[in-house]
Design a protein around this nucleic acid. Structure first.
Lengths: 171, 171
DNA sequence: CAGTATCCTGTCCGATACTG
DNA sequence: CAGTATCGGACAGGATACTG
């Protein structure tokens, strides 16, 4: 067993990672969400070897994040379009982008999220979809869900529904 | 060149990926944000080999996501605490968690985000931090920032500030 | 243009044994 | 308990050549 099966873990983060764990996958998805759909568009944009790109595209299609759609009969040509599942990854990409800009772009952002009307840069914020309250500790926490197994339940409750990131207490 | 240097790419997503690209990293961060801090806590929680855990912890400390803090003098013992940068990863983890629950948990969620007061499950939503408007296409888009190089700028403007995920047009 | 077919290398990771 | 030291296997990824 070279690699533990991420998809078998109960944690939804691990399950998600199983689909996008290879570091090309998210970059391909990023480009696909930007509107790229043809093989050579990805290739030029990413500078990726063709065999690797083919492999990753196949995996993403198999994982249900991309859809292979024929757009030309002769010669046979396929476009790779994000599925609903793939499009739902957008918030993940955007938070990741914000994080990268905040911490690893000392010279300023090279790509940023903007309001298309005003053109002004936008800071994304994660809130409760219902109350619109920012999701911060300790008002929100991770807890065992209905399908949690005993181990997961014990793991979470042992820590008393820890808020998931409260400031570390000084030791 | 066996692997392109993710950190050298202009895209903030790629830069971020460079820090958390190995699939253990996010799981370790997840546990660290849940409050785990000792070597054997991570080891038990993840079922990871000790040498790998040591390597990943070292990398995470080097990347500035974790801080190594001595909590015992004899024997010398260290705790691994998320830094501010590591804590800022929380929204990424939470959106990833929501995505995993939405798409890869057919039997229901095993771990979910809850309101600590009511105990009710919470759906996270990404909004504009200022206006609190949900970030959806085409009102928001990715655009070249102040530090964008010519290639990046061309790449983005060539598509006319594509909304980053508008529904694929039927072909 | 859109891939496929080979070959190769790096390294992530697992297993295990060992140490202060 | 908190790691380090070795060893080996699997595979992601790179380079390149080739095909309809």
């Amino acid at each position: 067993m070279q690699r533990k099966r991420l998809a078998d873990m109960p944690c939804p983060i691990a399950r998600g990672l199983d689909r996008i764990g290879e570091w090309w996958s998210l970059l391909i998805l990023r480009d696909a969400l930007l509107g790229l759909s043809h093989f050579d568009e990805f290739q030029r944009s990413l500078g990726i070897a063709p065999n690797i790109l083919a492999r990753r595209l196949r995996a993403l299609v198999a994982a249900g994040l991309l859809e292979k759609r024929r757009y030309s009969a002769r010669p046979v040509r396929y476009a790779y379009i994000p599925t609903a599942c793939g499009r739902d990854l957008r918030p993940v990409l955007l938070t990741l982008l914000a994080w990268g800009n905040a911490h690893f772009a000392p010279e300023g952002a090279s790509i940023e999220l903007v309001d298309t009307v005003s053109g002004a840069p936008v800071t994304p914020l994660l809130v409760d979809a219902v109350t619109r309250a920012p999701i911060t500790a300790p008002a929100y926490a991770l807890a065992a869900g209905p399908a949690a197994d005993a181990a997961t339940r014990a793991h979470l409750t042992a820590r008393g529904a820890r808020p998931f990131d409260e400031p570390p207490q000084p030791t």
